[in-house]
Amino acid sequence: MSNTKLIIEERAANIGNFMVGRLLPFRQKRMVGPFIFIDHMGPVCLSDEENMDIAMHPHIGLSTLTFLFEGAVMHRDSLGTEIEITPGAVNWMTAGKGVVHSERTPERLRNSKKMMHGLQIWVALPKAEEQCEPSFAHIPADTIPTWQDQGVQFKLIAGKAFGKESPVPVYSPLYFIELKSNKTKTLSIGGDLFGESALYILEGSITSDGNTYEPKQLLVAKDATLCAFEIAAHSTIYIFGGTPFPEERFIEWNFVASDKAIIEKAKKDWQDNTFPTVPNETLRIPLPPPKRFGG
């Protein structure tokens, strides 16, 4: 990637149950296209006494994309959704004007050792959709476009690219692509991308212009034209990006908006307990003291 603009290292962040590696937002780069938040969860082995238990919490102005490599998460939300996400599938929850959800280890795994590894992503909504009605979509793993090219396995998890379209119901032009290679290959895929673009290395490495980049690094391109790079054998990388919004986005806690007043109202609504609730859930995560996400 000869036009690398910025290299972002994973930074440890505590989400309550365990540490994650935070990629976005970053002090020098708040968003890549519409992507505004990315956490790398794990890999972590939880004992038979340890479980993921993220109680009810709210969102506005964004869609969440959960993509697991290992483990399972039971998703429950204020729309009445109750579904287990497993590796390779996509949970896509659009908060719009407001949704509440919880994320927990499924009952079948709570008393056994289990792995947890995946990506938690927030995609900001276009201004016209920020206050839309909330919705939820679960996309099974076998419906996500997967193909081979140049000896590399591609998977279009969300958006449009390479003449293909993922069934994930996105709201703006974007792409989120997985590349896996068992052999060392040189790739040139820039012509199929647009807007802003970044490359995240999950495992293995890539080499470009004599520089080698390794896991836990996020490479932000100067433009979407990812020039030729070499992907090492046994590597998995993710390329994501899309068309940036014309307006700035503000982010505080779990809230995203183009207007700070919308965030302030959401904060008050959560404190006043006027958000919808998740059926059969009583525990709520309280609004934290003022703090902006950042590098």
Score class of each variant (00 low, 15 high):
200 Y>H: 13
223 D>M: 01
228 A>W: 13
180 K>W: 14
184 T>P: 06
228 A>K: 13
198 A>I: 12
220 V>T: 15
229 F>H: 02
185 K>C: 10
216 K>P: 09
193 L>Q: 06
229 F>Y: 08
212 T>M: 09
207 T>F: 08
216 K>T: 11
159 G>W: 02
189 I>V: 13
158 A>K: 02
209 D>N: 12
163 G>L: 04
187 L>W: 08
201 I>G: 14
193 L>S: 03
161 A>R: 01
147 W>D: 01
148 Q>V: 13
155 K>I: 04
208 S>E: 13
191 G>Y: 00
216 K>G: 10
155 K>Q: 12
213 Y>C: 12
177 I>K: 11
233 A>G: 11
216 K>N: 15
155 K>P: 11
178 E>S: 14
217 Q>P: 08
193 L>I: 05
213 Y>Q: 11
183 K>W: 09
206 I>D: 12
152 V>N: 07
159 G>Q: 05
153 Q>N: 09
191 G>E: 09
197 S>L: 01
213 Y>K: 09
151 G>L: 07
184 T>L: 10
150 Q>L: 11
174 L>T: 00
200 Y>A: 10
214 E>A: 15
230 E>D: 07
187 L>V: 01
217 Q>A: 13
148 Q>F: 04
159 G>M: 05
188 S>N: 15
226 L>I: 13
173 P>R: 10
210 G>F: 01
210 G>I: 03
228 A>Y: 11
205 S>C: 13
167 P>M: 06
198 A>V: 11
191 G>C: 06
219 L>Q: 08
227 C>T: 06
170 V>P: 03
209 D>R: 08
179 L>D: 04
200 Y>K: 12
152 V>T: 11
189 I>H: 06
150 Q>C: 12
151 G>H: 10
215 P>R: 14
170 V>N: 10
165 E>N: 00
169 P>Q: 09
178 E>Y: 05
227 C>Y: 05
185 K>E: 09
221 A>V: 06
215 P>A: 15
179 L>C: 13
222 K>D: 00
175 Y>N: 04
207 T>Y: 05
191 G>R: 12
231 I>M: 15
183 K>M: 13
227 C>W: 04
196 E>C: 11
155 K>D: 03
225 T>M: 08
152 V>S: 08
172 S>F: 01
168 V>A: 05
149 D>G: 02
150 Q>W: 01
218 L>G: 03
193 L>M: 10
168 V>Y: 06
160 K>A: 01
219 L>C: 10
190 G>L: 07
150 Q>Y: 06
198 A>C: 11
221 A>I: 03
148 Q>Y: 05
152 V>Q: 07
163 G>T: 07
168 V>T: 14
158 A>H: 06
198 A>W: 03
167 P>R: 05
151 G>N: 05
182 N>G: 15
215 P>N: 13
222 K>Y: 00
170 V>T: 12
194 F>N: 00
200 Y>L: 15
190 G>C: 09
153 Q>L: 09
213 Y>F: 15
179 L>V: 01
161 A>V: 00
184 T>Q: 15
218 L>I: 11
158 A>W: 01
158 A>L: 07
218 L>S: 07
